[in-house]
């Protein structure tokens, strides 16, 4: 019963941590645009948090730069289990337009495991909200997607 309660709480109020791993800012402002009253993802209980230790979902943007690789790993390790990772944007999914640049490591999934990808350059706020809801639905169905 207690497990069910925890899962219910997790699905009804996922706290997210936004992390920029070297993106151009386009995806980051679209994530914030999903939080404003027009879409208001807060009605699904999504709250933006400041520290990885409070977060359930890590929302990453951008190709992982060489400088951010270690930091991304560290932030991921600081998050409590179970943790979920959502990648927003094309360059976070695969390196996108920055493929082949000397400062770029590649997609987020080259560094940490990823649960959901939201493609687009940048994805629209409604696509980001949709991606988050799909992730929540799959958590609700059971375990990791």
């Amino acid at each position: 019963m207690f497990k069910g309660l925890v899962k219910w709480a997790r699905v009804k109020s996922p706290w997210i941590l936004h992390m920029n791993c070297g993106s151009c800012n386009g995806c980051d402002i679209e994530i914030l645009a999903a939080l404003i009253p027009r879409l208001d993802v807060e009605r699904f209980g999504v709250l933006l948090k400041g520290t990885p230790r409070h977060a359930d979902v890590l929302v990453c943007t951008g190709p992982v730069t060489k400088q951010m690789k270690e930091r991304l790993k560290r932030v991921y390790d600081q998050m409590p289990e179970p943790k979920f990772v959502v990648v927003v944007g094309q360059c976070g999914s695969s390196g996108g337009i920055y493929q082949g640049a000397y400062g770029v490591e590649g997609g987020i999934d080259t560094v940490i495991p990823v649960n959901a990808y939201i493609p687009g350059c940048p994805p629209r706020p409604d696509a980001i909200a949709d991606g988050l809801i799909k992730l929540l639905a799959s958590i609700d169905k059971g375990g990791k997607p």
Binding site: N20, G22, G62, T65, Q67, M68, G100, A101, G103, V104
Partner: peptide
């Protein structure tokens, strides 16, 4: 600074 350095200037040459 330098955490989001991707190397765009060099990439542009290719």
């Amino acid at each position: 600074i330098g955490y989001t350095h991707r190397g765009i200037e060099k990439l542009m040459e290719s």
